[in-house]
Design a protein around this nucleic acid. Structure first.
Lengths: 117, 117
DNA sequence: TTAATATATGATCATACTCTCATATATAAT
DNA sequence: ATTATATATGAGAGTATGATCATATATTAA
């Protein structure tokens, strides 16, 4: 009922202050959560995981994921925009690969986390 | 125009087969992407990061993030449902903490990834 | 019991995502 | 130039997500 700025809640101010001092900063938080967001969709995760082993073109990925090439293309644009994949043109075909193999560590770590628990 | 099962695209079947053999399996993919999804929201990421250092109650977190307690509670339910946090009751107050400190590795790895590039 | 407080939860709304379909672009072949 | 192919892109639809508000529950104090 009382929406004033002075709430009557018992906030542990010391904890809040400590957390604030150890906080990451909003820009960094947003950047990290965006990186996680890139991996937070099954299709994109499969794409990233597949590209870690070999470069692939759009229709390879569409065949692998069993979705439309348009859908794959849209997801690849997202990953491209986020700076996670790049492509190489060979004639009409665009081969995609990750910019950085370290994405594999992130996926592997998440996998291990789920495995032992 | 042609939606038959036999598409005329030039799929690199060897690549698709290799990717398929190295694939993670849909269940695992979904589990991993769900884990990433849990970290893919700025509010949840801040909550997780804060709890890594100390247990905190709902209104502490609400004060820290400067959002409503209801919003925090909803996010905590999500994290609880996903098995990432647990709580301990002390009277009326529920103190939350991560089930597993390894989440910190995941966040740290993502942070490093973004830092050196 | 009643009142107060901290949190949980359901309904709802606005926004963001992801797919599909249609169309556009770029390269290659004729 | 025309055609074909691989991919990109814009618009739209259906769904998921995240916040808010109202209400419910659980614990404590009186």
């Amino acid at each position: 009922m009382n929406n004033d700025s002075c709430s009557c809640r018992i906030v542990h101010q010391d904890k809040v202050d400590l957390a604030r001092s150890q906080g990451l900063g909003l820009d960094k938080i947003k950047a990290i959560s965006n990186l996680f967001k890139a991996c937070a969709d099954p299709s994109r995760l499969r794409i990233l995981h597949a590209l870690l082993h070999q470069e692939m073109c759009v229709c390879d990925l569409a065949a692998l994921l069993d979705v439309s090439e348009s859908a794959v293309s849209h997801q690849l644009r997202l990953l491209r925009t986020m700076g996670l994949v790049v492509n190489r043109r060979d004639g009409v075909v665009l081969y995609y690969r990750p910019v950085d193999q370290r994405i594999s560590q992130l996926i592997a770590l998440a996998g291990e986390f789920l495995a032992n628990k």
